[in-house]
């Protein structure tokens, strides 16, 4: 456990440092907390993330710490199904209880990872620039933390659950593929918009694409002060809805995972070695 926490701290500090140095660069040397959070979640300066290839590549680059976490902790649960799983589960028959305990552990590690990333990025920004704290920034930071932690947790859990059936490399490929295709579909939305008379189709695509919920700059809020800061060209997404959607998604994956783990036949135990 201490090794795991040490690794999370290392990954988190590195990820936070890379994000802060690469993407937090205010023109004037001063940056407000709200602008800092928006830049971490995709915005370019004061402008919301656009749909061009370069901007989407910069979004993927911002998500690299998340992918690295998924690769490393994508075997957190799965490893129990590779080595002596029959022995473990014969000694510990309440599989669902065991599973919920493990998912809690993955959730806690994901939480810690996001805290370390944000703390490092804030610390480096304070050293490099003048960081001005505003209450809108604190609210946005809370939204960013909850949405990104829930997303990280659900994707890591999904890698683990799929790995039980198809092996670790294939499961990461599938989960990574889903995220990449979602990002590419964001890029295609500009093309769709050209051929559509109404914006309704565009708005639906934006809502059903999970990645768009991670980009705070594309949101709106009931609070005028927050709304003014967001300044989004795509005002269909509501911060509250996004947070609820991502949390609901995490809960659904956890429940489906419980069902899957309960019914999994342990005779076909080691998909890693394909035996």
């Amino acid at each position: 456990m201490i090794y795991k926490i040490g690794l999370v701290l290392l990954f988190g500090v590195l990820g936070g440092a890379l994000l802060a140095i690469s993407f937090v660069n205010p023109y004037s040397g001063k940056i407000s907390l709200s602008e800092f959070v928006l830049q971490l979640s995709g915005s370019r300066g004061e402008f919301a993330l656009g749909l061009s290839m370069f901007e989407l590549i910069s979004l993927i680059t911002r998500m690299i710490p998340i992918y690295l976490f998924e690769i490393y902790f994508g075997t957190a649960l799965y490893r129990h199904f590779c080595t002596a799983s029959i022995y473990v589960f014969s000694r510990y028959p309440k599989r669902i209880r065991w599973y919920l305990h493990e998912t809690l552990s993955v959730g806690a590690i994901a939480c810690l990872f996001q805290i370390v990333i944000l703390a490092t990025a804030i610390f480096l920004t304070i050293i490099r620039f003048q960081l001005q704290t505003d209450w809108v920034g604190i609210v946005l930071l809370a939204y960013h933390f909850i949405i990104h932690t829930a997303w990280l947790y659900s994707m890591t859990l999904l890698v683990n659950l799929l790995a039980i059936s198809i092996g670790s490399s294939a499961s990461f490929m599938v989960v990574f593929g889903i995220q990449i295709v979602s990002i590419t579909l964001l890029g295609c939305m500009g093309t769709f918009q050209k051929y559509m008379d109404t914006t309704a189709f565009f708005d639906i695509l934006l809502i059903i694409n999970p990645i768009s919920h991670l980009i705070l700059g594309w949101h709106s809020s009931n609070y005028e002060a927050i709304n003014q800061r967001l300044n989004s060209p795509y005002l269909m997404l509501d911060l509250k809805h996004s947070i609820l959607l991502i949390i609901a998604f995490s809960v659904i994956i956890t429940l489906l995972g419980a069902l899957f783990v309960k019914k999994h036949d342990l005779i076909f135990a080691d998909s890693e070695k394909e035996v």
């Binding site: 690299i64 690295l68 790995a163 670790s168 890693e272």
Partner: peptide, 16 residues
Amino acid sequence: VKYRIILFLPVFVLLY
């Protein structure tokens, strides 16, 4: 490595 997923890391980290 015990899990093949870890082998994605070297090239992934290098390119990014």
